[in-house]
């Protein structure tokens, strides 16, 4: 966010809320400093900005800066890569990446682009079994450290403005911890990611948020926290409904059904809910197929359906 913008946002929000400079500045900074922030003479840190906005009851517009490029062909490649990645077509991602690397403008545009490439290369290498799970986490962390050096797995700095690539990297790291058995670490990271999202008007963030929540609910479910997992799914669904998008919602519906079934299996839920569980799982499968999502997931979900519901009434 440019200084010009922060200055205006503070100033106009304060006037809109009818608060004096003195009142706003109290306990946060000097009134003179606030005046300087508002005139654009001094740029407030992300932390001060956030404190000021929160004091006014506005969480402020926080951006998760999406990956952007001024290069037209790079832009369309990025979209294609995004698509292929969501569908689990890693061979295609690899090919597209090679094309992207040839776009010189893209590479010259800054370290975030380089980080983006590194993330994808790591994913492709792992999915095609060229590196193992341990090396994968190392690669992901190394990519993250290109722009974010102080990654503390237990808490994310509340006031730092993250880029989309950074959020996705953190989410990938969490997911890998989950897959390789270190579920506690995974949960901690997801919790701090959710806290980061929570309560703020975060723009341009639908991709990271649904990806994070989908993986978060999976890890919770696998650890036996069925109700918490369902709650995360509902948060995901509500959010996607609000934004009128259906990416990955199959995941949320399936997970809800999966969790209900697991609860029934261990006696935490009545057998009468079996039909409901079945409906959710069925809906998950149908939506995955309808929106041409990851076919590997589709096959796994169908298998779960066959094994758990095919012979029920």
């Amino acid at each position: 966010m440019g200084e010009h913008n922060k200055a205006n946002i503070i100033k106009y929000t304060r006037k809109y809320m009818n608060i004096t400079q003195a009142a706003l500045a109290e306990n946060i900074c000097d009134p003179v400093t606030l005046a300087r922030y508002e005139s654009g003479k001094l740029e407030p840190s992300d932390e001060k900005f956030s404190l000021l906005m929160q004091k006014m009851g506005q969480s402020g517009e926080k951006y998760i800066i999406p990956l952007a490029s001024t290069d037209e062909s790079a832009k369309s490649l990025i979209n294609e890569i995004s698509d292929a990645l969501e569908k689990g077509d890693y061979a295609k991602v690899e090919v597209l990446l090679e094309n992207l690397k040839r776009q010189r403008t893209f590479l010259q545009e800054g370290s975030e682009n380089f980080q983006y490439l590194k993330r994808l290369e790591a994913i492709v290498a792992y999915e095609s079994n060229k590196i193992d799970a341990h090396e994968f986490i190392t690669e992901l962390k190394s990519a993250l450290s290109l722009t974010f050096k102080d990654f503390d797995e237990c808490s994310l700095p509340k006031h730092r403005v993250f880029t989309q690539t950074e959020i996705l990297l953190i989410s990938n790291i969490a997911r890998q911890y989950g897959i390789s058995g270190n579920k506690e670490k995974a949960i901690k990271i997801y919790e701090s990611l959710e806290k980061y999202f929570m309560g703020d008007i975060v723009l341009n963030d639908y991709m990271p948020r649904y990806a994070v929540l989908a993986n978060y609910s999976s890890v919770l479910g696998l650890m036996g926290y069925y109700d918490e997992s369902i709650a995360v799914c509902i948060r995901g669904l509500k959010w996607m409904k609000k934004h009128n998008k259906c990416n990955l919602i199959y995941n949320f519906y399936y997970n809800i059904g999966w969790n209900i079934k697991k609860k029934i299996d261990c006696g935490m839920e009545s057998e009468t809910m079996l039909s409901v569980a079945q409906c959710y799982v069925w809906l998950g499968c149908e939506l995955c197929k309808l929106y041409h999502e990851d076919m590997r997931n589709y096959r796994n979900m169908c298998k779960f359906y066959e094994e758990n519901f095919a012979y029920s009434q």
Binding site: I234, G236, L237, K238, K241, I249, C279, Y280, L283, L287
Partner: peptide, 10 residues
């Protein structure tokens, strides 16, 4: 899907 509750649940 079109008859979802406000929170997205069926």
């Amino acid at each position: 899907l079109n008859t979802r509750n406000v929170d997205g649940t069926i």
